[in-house]
């Protein structure tokens, strides 16, 4: 397996939708290719960081205000 081949299936590797045969080839490649290993590892971390950190926080008082406004408008709509 070449680096370009690995990168082409990087998403499938991350999403774990890879056939066993290919997985073995990937492991062989990663053992000898530091670059691809770093790319895989840090791409996984990138996704994880965005999943774990709320960058657009909704403070509870804002949330409450919006929630009430929504329900108010819905009740009127009926």
């Amino acid at each position: 397996m070449k680096c370009t081949e690995f990168l082409a299936i990087l998403d499938d590797v991350i999403d774990e939708s890879i056939a066993a045969q290919t997985r073995a080839e990937i492991e062989v490649h990663l053992r000898k290719c530091g670059h691809c290993e770093v790319v895989l590892d840090t791409t996984r971390k990138t996704i994880e960081i965005y999943r774990c950190h709320e960058i657009y926080e909704l403070p509870s008082e804002v949330s409450e205000r919006l929630h009430n406004a929504i329900m108010e408008r819905c009740k009127k709509a009926k």
Partner: peptide, 20 residues
């Protein structure tokens, strides 16, 4: 979607590498 997702992930990764 797949092609955009891959590029989004790689670009974010590249940019975050500067900090991390």
């Amino acid at each position: 979607v797949k092609s955009r997702l891959l590029r989004a992930r790689l670009q974010l990764r590249d940019r975050l590498t500067r900090y991390f």
